[in-house]
Simulated scan of single mutants.
Amino acid sequence: MKNLVVALVFCFAFSCQNSAQVTNPKQQAVIDAEPIEIPLENGKAKAYFASGCFWCVEAIYESVKGVNEVISGYSGGFTKNPTYELSNTGRTGHAEAVEVIYDPNVVSFTTLVDVYFASQNPTQVNGQGPDRGSQYRSIIFFQNAEQKEIILKKKAALAKKLNATIAAEVYPFQKFWIGEDYHQNYERLHPNQGYIRNVSIPRLRRFQAKMPEVLKSSH
Rank of each mutant, 00 (worst) to 15 (best):
F173L: 05
S119A: 15
I71P: 08
Q128R: 04
F109S: 04
K80P: 00
G90E: 04
I150T: 02
H190A: 04
V113D: 05
I139Y: 13
I151G: 02
I201A: 07
N144I: 03
G66K: 09
V113C: 10
F141L: 10
N198W: 02
D103G: 02
V98F: 11
P172A: 15
K65E: 15
V98P: 09
I178M: 14
D114S: 10
E187N: 11
K65H: 11
D103H: 05
L158C: 07
F176C: 13
T83R: 03
Q135I: 09
G90V: 07
Y186L: 07
Q193P: 01
R206F: 06
G129L: 07
F142Q: 04
Q124N: 03
F141P: 06
I196Q: 02
R206S: 14
Q128F: 08
T165Q: 13
F173P: 02
T110A: 13
I166R: 14
V67C: 13
K153H: 01
K175Y: 15
D181Q: 13
Q193V: 05
V67S: 11
K148Q: 10
F176P: 11
I166F: 15
S75V: 13
P130F: 05
Q208S: 11
A159H: 08
P82T: 04
I178K: 15
S138M: 12
E180I: 12
E96I: 06
Q147N: 01
V107A: 08
A145P: 00
R206A: 15
P122D: 05
D103K: 00
N105G: 14
E180N: 07
S134P: 06
T92V: 04
R203A: 15
K161H: 11
V125E: 14
Y186P: 08
K155H: 12
Q120L: 12
K148A: 03
E187W: 10
E69Y: 14
Q124A: 03
A97R: 00
N192R: 06
V106C: 07
A159S: 15
R206M: 12
S72W: 07
N121A: 05
F142H: 07
D103V: 01
